[in-house]
Structure formats: structure tokens, C-alpha cells
Amino acid sequence: MRFGLSFLPDSTPETKSPAAYYDEVLALSRYGDQAGLDYVKMTEHYLHPYGGYCPSPLTFLTAVAAQTTDIRLITGCVLPVFHHPVQLASYITMVDAISHGRLEIGFARAYLPHEFHAFDVPMDGSRARFEAVIAAVARMLKEEGVDEQTPYFTLRNATVLPRPTQQDGPPLWIAAVQSPESFRRIAELGHGLLITPTGRELDNSMVELYRKTYAEHHPDSAPRVMASLPLVVAETDQEARAIADPHLNRYLEVWSSALDPWDETVSKDYHQYTGLAASIRTLTAKDLRANGSAIVGSPEHVAEQIGRFQERMNVDGLLWQADFGDFGGAAALRSTELFVEKVRPQFPGAAR
């Protein structure tokens, strides 16, 4: 199993300055590289404390690349519906070169109504636009002289520069949350799957659907699944809960605030999202810990929780969200150190 770090900032200038936030996550990234962790992941969001400190994960990962040597870099995720594919593919190959071929690309459909409004992109029809951009990017990472005619953009003899550093281009991943259509389609396209538990009871049926569909369409290769979860490790369970719970509750508060427009928003491309905010508002830190959506405890208890999660979800990697609810600084670094020193050794073969 692979282990790494996953970042999704939920800070504001009142709670943490941007400079302080980036100092903290870059320090964690450097430590992760030195400690032999496999990945650093950063997401893309706009105009809200939920993710708004990182409108450009590729820019952040460029900074990580300049300060590390071995750890792989993954977007988790970029939002292709808000980008032209030539721009996105060119930025990807640039970071792939700067990192000497350590980049992997995660895509997500975007699901926050305020972001669609900001970019004047309709939510209805966004699934088709999402797939069109990814298909074009994937072609330009492998081919030269690409031609594409879509309702959203036109490419004529497009050859992005620089060319990818990795022979077949950076590996591609796609995030999915709750739609069976999304899990099935990711498998049909042959991409890796990124998941983040939503705080409800863990359900492995969608991951199994992905694996089954992948095997049917790509029998000569293996499916890939990685999950991102909040993590706090302390010397005792009581200490870990005392550290984690205020930050988990703030994370839920910020996340539900970003989801508020779904109280009234309806979209044919997002059938199950209307009312999502109301569901998230009912959750507490205790719920996240109880259902396995956050891993909190002593090293021994954390190892047990990881084992149970793996038995249920059967993932290839776990990426630890170490910046939730303004958690960070020395406390987040100490938690990560305890994971590396006392938890990871209980999973043979996990060290890079």
C-alpha cells in the first residue's frame, strides 16, 4: 500500500495567513519526501474558504517539486471544465519537466455551484464538457498534431510544448463521490480512481463497480484506487481526539457552507446533490471517527483503523489530509511523524 499527503485548504485570512498556510504544507511536503512517503496531493477551488487558498494545484506542486527529490506529485484534483485543454495540457507538461517526471494528474468534475457561476459555465451539460476536455488533454499528452472539434473548443494540429517528460505522459486519475455513472465511466476510460469518504457510512459498492467495469474493459492492466482521509496520530486515543475534533468540526462547518447553494440548486448532471448541505450539516467529528471517514488515535489504534478501512474498501493507497480545519504547523508535522515512525512500519512494503 502507498501512503502520502493530501491537502485541501480551508483557511481564511482571519484564521491563517496564506503565507503561513503555504509554509506549513511545504514543510510537510519536504518531510514527506525525506520520510519516503509516496505522494503530495493538492486540490483546486475558488472564492470560498473551502479550498480557496489553492486555485492552482499545479502552481503549488511546482513549488513542491523545487523543494523535493523523490516524492510524486498529484493534483487532487484540477477542474477541467474551467480550463481550455491546450492551457491545461501545457501546464501539465511544464510541471512534469520541472519535477523530472514525478507528476500525476487527478481530474474532478467540480460540484460547487458558486464556481460554475463564477466561470459562467452551465452545470447542465458539464459532464460532457468534462469528458471532452480530459479526452483532449489525454491525446495531447501522447500525440502530436491533435485535431478535435467539440461544442466547447476546437483544436487544429495542436502539439503542446514542452512534450511530457514521462514516456507515456503523467498517469491520469479521476475523482468520484456517489454517482454510479461516474465510477463506471472512469473504469471504461481506463483511468485511476480517487475517492474521499463523504462522512456517511463507508460503502465499497462503488469501488467494486469500478474494479469490475475496469476488468471488463481493460483485462490487460490493473485498476488503481486511492483514498484521501483526515488523519491525526497522537500518543494516546484521548489526546488524538482532543486535537482532532475541533479541527474536524471546523472542516465540516466550512464544507457545509460551501455546499449551501445545493439547498436550492437542481441540475440534471448532479442528480444526487440537491440537499447535500443539509446532510453534511448533521455530521460531527464523532461521526467521522465512528464511520471511518477520519482516522484518529494512538499509533496502535490508527493501524487497526487502516486495516479495517482496507478490508472494506480495498484501496491501493491512502493519502492523509493533514490541513483540515486549519490543522497544521507543528501539530500536523508531529502527527505525520508519528504515522511514519510508528504506524507505517506495521504495513510491510509501504516505505518507498
Rank of each mutant, 00 (worst) to 15 (best):
G125F: 06
I280H: 07
E239N: 07
D33I: 10
L209M: 07
A294R: 02
L193Y: 12
L194F: 15
F153G: 01
H301F: 13
G36F: 11
S298R: 07
P80W: 01
Q305I: 07
S126A: 09
G32Y: 09
E341I: 03
A89N: 06
F339R: 02
D237R: 03
A332I: 02
G317H: 12
L5D: 01
M206A: 08
Y273R: 12
F324Y: 15
W262F: 05
D124K: 01
I134L: 08
P122E: 03
G4C: 00
N291R: 05
L193I: 07
Y91V: 12
G199F: 07
Y53M: 05
P348R: 03
A290T: 14
T69P: 07
R102C: 00
V296S: 05
V302E: 06
K268P: 08
G106K: 07
V340K: 04
T59C: 12
E104A: 10
D260G: 05
Q149V: 13
F309D: 08
A332G: 08
I306S: 03
Y270M: 07
R281H: 13
Y152N: 01
F107K: 06
G317I: 10
A227R: 05
A128Y: 08
E144M: 11
E181S: 13
D38E: 14
A278W: 12
I134R: 05
A350Y: 11
G4D: 02
E14N: 08
L229C: 00
A128I: 03
A350L: 09
T62C: 08
I195F: 12
Y111G: 13
H45I: 09
T12I: 03
V343H: 09
Q34E: 15
R156M: 11
S256F: 09
H117E: 15
G169N: 11
H84A: 08
L26A: 08
D260A: 13
Y50K: 02
E143D: 13
P122K: 01
L61C: 02
Q166P: 06
I74S: 09
T284L: 05
A222M: 11
E208Q: 14
V78A: 04
H114Q: 14
R289F: 11
L79P: 11
D260C: 04
G51R: 00
P80M: 02
M42Y: 14
G52H: 05
F7N: 00
T68D: 07
G76D: 15
V232N: 00
L26W: 14
Q310E: 10
H83I: 03
T69M: 09
A351F: 13
V315D: 11
V40N: 02
P223S: 09
Q321D: 13
Q321E: 15
Q305L: 12
F183G: 00
A227L: 04
R127I: 10
D287Y: 04
I306P: 05
L141A: 06
G4E: 03
R281C: 10
